[in-house]
């Protein structure tokens, strides 16, 4: 009761600041109108310098023939219009085909990694939602892969995936899942895809776990009490309370996971190095190789712009979908 009587008193305080506002009409612009702009100015400067301007240069690069013959003298590089794009999108040509297959590999990779990383994160967050002995230990343990520097984590997996000396084949052999005399390869051939997915999930899922765990703390405990009094089983509770309660987290989390995974460069770069197997040819890595190893930066830029357009399209559709759903709800 005390609380409710105090609350109305807060509102007049807000009104009390009106005297400041009363002076406003005297000037054309409200006093301190520039303040928000000054506050965002540093962010804008850095964003322009590091993200926006290089991006525009990159887009311009995609329209010129920036091969080894011109990289030392850009002004001489001929303008080719959409020429680079035509090569990239001609799926009958070798480059177009390679791009398409890399794109499809990346799509499969993204769906699996985002789906499983989210699933693992959700399972762990729910399992650790209620207090029990040892909860803190698990929570701490699960966050470690997020803090381990990417290079260290991925190179360790590379070591584990070695065909004849690696621990993975040794475990699989001990479980009689593989023929120990003819162990499978994980870093070449089609299995490279599996290896890449496993590694990417390992370093990504703790982030999903972290966000979901944080989200769970905002859900009111009473809801669960009420539901279990009504006899709802844990799964029902999860579907009816947890999932809706995490709606806002999930909206952002899934988008961020998608963008990070689709643009993943480090995993194949560190796992495979120079000779990447086609099954491990993620699109960022593919573009990097085309640009830097074969010295064709114009073509590389065109492929990057296509990638950007795709990501923008997917994000836009996603956001429209999310907004509609939240409006309906």
């Amino acid at each position: 009761m005390v609380l409710t009587t105090e609350k109305p008193e807060v509102a007049p305080v807000g009104v009390a600041s009106a005297p400041g506002a009363v002076k406003l009409p005297k000037k054309k612009r409200p006093k301190g109108w520039w303040l928000p702009f000054a506050l965002i100015a540093p962010a804008i400067v850095f964003e322009l310098l590091i993200h926006v301007i290089p991006m525009i240069v990159g887009i311009w690069m995609s329209f010129i023939k920036l091969t080894q013959f011109y990289i030392a003298n850009w002004s001489a590089a001929p303008f080719v219009g959409f020429g680079n794009y035509q090569i990239a999108l001609n799926f009958n040509g070798a480059q177009g085909q390679a791009l398409l297959s890399s794109f499809l590999v990346t799509c499969g990779f993204t769906i699996l990694v985002v789906g499983l990383a989210w699933g693992f994160g959700m399972a762990a967050a729910v399992a650790l939602q209620k207090a029990f002995r040892g909860r803190a230990i698990f929570r701490t343990m699960f966050l470690i892969p997020y803090a381990v520097p990417m290079y260290a984590g991925i190179i360790t997996w590379k070591f584990m995936f070695q065909q004849n000396t690696g621990v993975i084949n040794q475990i699989l052999g001990a479980l009689h899942l593989i023929d120990p005399n003819n162990p499978p390869f994980w870093l070449i051939g089609n299995n490279a895809f599996v290896a890449m997915v496993v590694v990417a999930i390992w370093k990504l899922w703790p982030f999903a776990f972290l966000m979901l765990m944080a989200g769970l703390q905002t859900i009111n405990e009473d809801l669960y009490e009420a539901a279990s009094l009504d006899g709802a089983k844990p799964f029902r509770q999860w579907r009816n309370i947890t999932l809706p309660g995490l709606g806002a987290v999930n909206n952002v989390l899934l988008l961020v996971l998608f963008l990070w995974t689709f643009n993943d460069f480090n995993t194949p770069f560190i796992l495979f190095g120079g000779g990447e197997p086609p099954a491990g040819d993620l699109i960022s890595f593919h573009i990097y190789n085309t640009s830097f190893i074969t010295l064709n930066f114009g073509f590389g830029a065109a492929m990057s712009v296509l990638l950007l357009l795709f990501l923008m399209l997917v994000s836009a559709i996603y956001l429209v979908f999310i907004n509609r759903r939240s409006r309906r709800a």
Binding site: Q68, F69, P184, F185, I188, G189, N190, N191, G275, E276, P277, P278, N289, I293, T294, L295
Partner: peptide
Amino acid sequence: VPLEASFETEVGNSMNTLFATVAT
């Protein structure tokens, strides 16, 4: 020839893939 760097990468990489096929 100027295309040597591309030749080295493309032919070398396709041989990696061919060897992977044999090995698997």
